[in-house]
């Protein structure tokens, strides 16, 4: 993926850029808001990783100007501002995601990969992966021809996993997108629901499409 990293903390930027390259992405780095905005207007970037506090032009204004100019490249904010308002403001300015520093690199990577997916995914009404078929309009799940009953939260969980099939989704991403929970629960909410979903999904099948990535999250495996 082609990434644009706008970050004035050089040490962090170097470390992030090296990490992205290790995972096969190409990175362009800008250290201030003005040059960041200029680079961001170029169409080859697939995801923009943007620091919220920048010298010159701050991240929030940068996103607003970008969106006003019609640039739709997905943006993820990196920020030390963890207030509820800060997140809401960031998303309202036009960013797609918001990650509070410090964060685990694997978390950032997973979010970038999800942001970089084809936008056409959104128009789909039936998600298919192997023998699993999730009808988003009928709210039904069919595996190998057999209908499986899911609770609403289980349905949303599976939908999110399948929309991001073959990509890592972290615990925090699931909490935010399935339950709209923006804090860290002290109990194993995600694990318990995944195990329920697995039990229902795999009741008559030997293949478990939900892969656990230890210490990171889950991945829904879809045969290509």
């Amino acid at each position: 993926m082609n990434l644009l990293l706008i970050e004035d903390d050089i040490e962090l930027a170097d470390s992030l850029a090296a990490g992205f390259r290790d995972h096969g992405h190409s990175v362009v780095h800008a250290a201030d808001g003005a040059s960041g905005l200029r680079l961001a207007r170029e169409p080859e970037h697939q995801v923009i990783v943007l620091d919220r506090m920048l010298p010159g032009l701050d991240g929030l204004s940068l996103v607003r100007q970008l969106r006003a100019a019609g640039v739709r490249t997905p943006v993820i904010f990196l920020t030390t501002m963890s207030g509820i308002d800060d997140r809401v403001n960031g998303l309202e300015a036009g960013a797609e995601d918001y990650l509070v520093k410090p964060f685990a690199f694997v978390e950032l990577l997973a979010r970038i990969r999800v942001l970089g997916r084809r936008p056409a995914d959104q128009a789909v009404t039936v998600l298919r992966a192997g023998d699993v078929e999730l009808d988003l309009l009928q709210r039904t799940l069919i595996r190998a021809g057999r209908a499986i009953e899911l609770l609403p939260q289980e349905f949303r969980l599976l939908e999110y996993l399948m929309r991001n099939a073959n990509r890592l989704v972290t615990r925090a991403m699931l909490l935010e997108n399935v339950w709209d929970i923006h804090f860290d629960p002290q109990t194993s909410v995600v694990e318990s629901h995944i195990s329920r979903l697995r039990a229902k999904l795999n009741a008559d099948s030997a293949v478990d499409p939900i892969q656990t990535i230890r210490g990171a999250g889950y991945k829904f495996l879809a045969p290509s």
Partner: peptide
């Protein structure tokens, strides 16, 4: 209701 649905599996586990 949503929160209960969220925590029922945790409780059962």
């Amino acid at each position: 209701k949503e929160l209960c649905a969220m925590y029922v599996p945790v409780a059962e586990d």
